[in-house]
Design a protein around this nucleic acid. Structure first.
Length: 600
DNA sequence: ATAGGGTTAG
């Protein structure tokens, strides 16, 4: 306002463009009070706000006012005319305030208007809005996509980026992503770093990490400059693949690109190293960080917890609080699962109650799931059941999974059946339910029930994912399934297993055939477990690396209990440290023992 | 003038 007064004192005419500039500045400074004064001054002077000024005013309200309703009031009553910019601004406004549905509805309303057509920016805005709509954002997003196609609008690379991101956030699967990918490759659209990163992110999130790397290499070949966001996404893909050699290379590229000190990058590096089984590298990154935020601590706590160092994880949590970093809801998931993995039941109960009491964080279903897991693993099944009953919200699948997992360890058929029934109500096609329940039946020798489960799976078309193991040797990934004979060195691998098996028996190994789901005699059962993918991968690791080298294997599912026992013996016999990452956590086998302390 | 890609859990 002082500018206006000064101009008036000096007799300089204050015109439309002056007001526009001032409003623009208020919008940038988020100074709603000043902006309102400038606007009313203009109206008092009898100047009609033109379309440009109206849009700036609207933008200011969107960015500066507490309520989106204030902006809507400007949109409805203060604009002489509405053009595509006004509509887009209002759509963005709703999205910025978290009202995705209203943004989408306004977009639909815009389509009914004569003389206004959405442009690239409108589509970007509304697609972003769709991705925050719960629960049917995907439907809305598809609606927008369909409209783009029907209207003959040629999406440019930015609209493609928004489409990919919307589909990723709304959980649409792979096939569509591959189509877009192909479209971008085949069309004359030029790759740019954002669309490439969006694709990498999408592939990484739906588990197609090899494809994420394909895009990454395409970008490199095209000479597109990669930035911090790209590296963050590709590191996630790398972590999914547990590709340590690849990860180290990425780390070098990151340093070369001058991004080594970026906190987001460092957080992603810690996570990548931890998930690739190299705890030492993860710790190195963490220790050398100049600054650590809540994510850095959370990732590190979780890494410790996953590697079976529950006490150290809790110690780190204490240090985090001492340094004044506030834990969030996700930190507590790490803390609670650290207690769970380490069997620290009372500590876990303490942290659970301190969550709300000391930090004001409301426990979600996931936190309750951790508690069920904690109690269940410790064999306190009744309390685990009580915990589920006490939950304020409906139990989700992961809670029933925790309970059923515990029932498996403690062979509680009755409770297992009840947990499975609840879980199946929510996820009738999840193979894990059937598998876990079969294990419980197998341990109890209830073969008829297993037959029934198999029948049920067949009727419902449920297929269980085959167990697979990976091992990286000299930067190359080798995959095994049970009884695999496809590997080039198959003879040496089986010969090595033969030798090991003799040594193991001498050392007192007894095969653990409790969970073999076929009604066989003991000898047949033993044969069924002796060529599991875990054992093949380990045998290959032993024959293809120097004595004393650490062996790291990865499994898609939970490690089998016999393989767990056998690996303990193998680590002692061969003097090797063996690190196994399964679908759930890490196991460090050393000198006949495992870091998981039999909790898994 | 309105504007794209993002780390941590299960």
């Amino acid at each position: 306002m002082s500018v206006i007064h000064k101009m008036e004192e000096q007799g300089i005419p204050v015109v439309h463009s002056t007001y526009a500039k001032l409003l623009r500045r208020c919008s940038e400074m988020r100074d709603l009070v000043e902006g309102k004064q400038v606007y009313s001054h203009m109206v008092q002077r009898g100047l009609q706000p033109n379309i440009f000024i109206g849009n700036v005013l609207l933008d200011m309200f969107v960015n500066s006012s507490a309520s989106v309703e204030d902006a809507r009031e400007v949109f409805d009553n203060k604009l002489v005319e509405k053009d595509v910019v006004s509509w887009s601004t209002m759509i963005t406004g709703y999205a910025k305030h978290g009202h995705g549905k209203e943004a989408f509805e306004l977009f639909c309303c815009m389509l009914q208007q004569e003389g206004v057509k959405p442009n690239t920016i409108t589509y970007m805005s509304v697609l972003k809005a769709c991705s925050i709509i719960i629960p049917n954002g995907l439907e809305c997003g598809e609606h927008v996509h369909a409209h783009i196609i029907e209207s003959g609008f040629e999406p440019d690379v930015r609209v493609w980026t928004s489409l990919i991101s919307m589909y990723t956030r709304c959980g649409r699967t792979l096939e569509w992503g591959r189509e877009v990918h192909a479209h971008i490759v085949n069309s004359r659209l030029k790759w740019d770093v954002c669309v490439g990163t969006a694709l990498i992110s999408m592939y990484a999130k739906c588990g197609a990490s090899e494809d994420a790397f394909k895009v990454y290499r395409e970008l490199q070949q095209e000479g597109v400059g990669l930035n911090r966001v790209t590296y963050i996404c590709i590191l996630k893909a790398c972590a999914n693949l547990t590709a340590l050699a690849e990860g180290r290379q990425l780390n070098l590229n990151i340093i070369e690109a001058g991004l080594g000190a970026d906190i987001w990058i460092q957080n992603a590096l810690i996570d990548m190293y931890a998930k690739c089984g190299s705890f030492v590298d993860a710790r190195k990154v963490f220790d050398t960080m100049a600054q650590r935020d809540v994510v850095s601590w959370t990732v590190m706590i979780d890494a410790l917890s996953q590697h079976g160092c529950g006490e150290e994880a809790l110690e780190l949590f204490g240090q985090m609080k001492e340094e004044g970093v506030q834990p969030d809801a996700i930190t507590f998931i790490g803390v609670l699962s650290a207690c769970s993995h380490a069997g620290l039941v009372n500590e876990g109960l303490g942290y659970f109650s301190s969550m709300f009491q000391d930090h004001g964080i409301m426990p979600t279903s996931t936190h309750y799931g951790c508690m069920v897991d904690l109690l269940g693993r410790a064999g306190r099944l009744r309390e685990a059941e009580e915990c589920i009953k006490k939950m304020p919200n409906e139990a989700n699948p992961s809670i029933w999974a925790a309970l059923l997992g515990a029932c498996r360890v403690y062979c509680n058929v009755k409770l297992a059946e009840s947990a499975a029934t609840h879980w199946l109500k929510l996820e009738p096609k999840n193979a894990a339910v059937y598998v876990l329940l079969s294990h419980v039946y197998a341990a109890a020798g209830m073969w008829d029930s297993i037959v029934e489960i198999r029948k049920l799976m067949e009727e419902r078309g449920v297929q269980k994912e085959p167990g697979r193991c990976w091992i990286e040797v000299e930067g190359k990934m080798h995959t095994f399934v049970a009884d695999d004979r496809t590997h080039l060195q198959v003879e040496q691998i089986y010969a090595e297993l033969e030798t090991l098996s003799v040594q193991m028996k001498e050392a007192g190994y007894v095969p653990d055939t409790r969970f073999v789901v076929h009604d066989l005699d003991e000898q047949q059962k033993e044969r069924a477990v002796c060529y599991h993918s875990e054992k093949l991968a380990i045998a290959y690791g032993i024959i293809s690396t120097a004595p004393g080298t650490q062996i790291r294997i990865f499994k898609n599912l939970r490690i089998c209990s016999d393989c767990h026992t056998a690996t303990k013996f193998i680590s002692k016999i061969t003097g090797r440290e063996i690190v196994a990452r399964d679908g759930n956590r890490f196991h460090h086998f050393n000198n006949g023992e495992c870091s998981c302390g039999e909790y898994w």
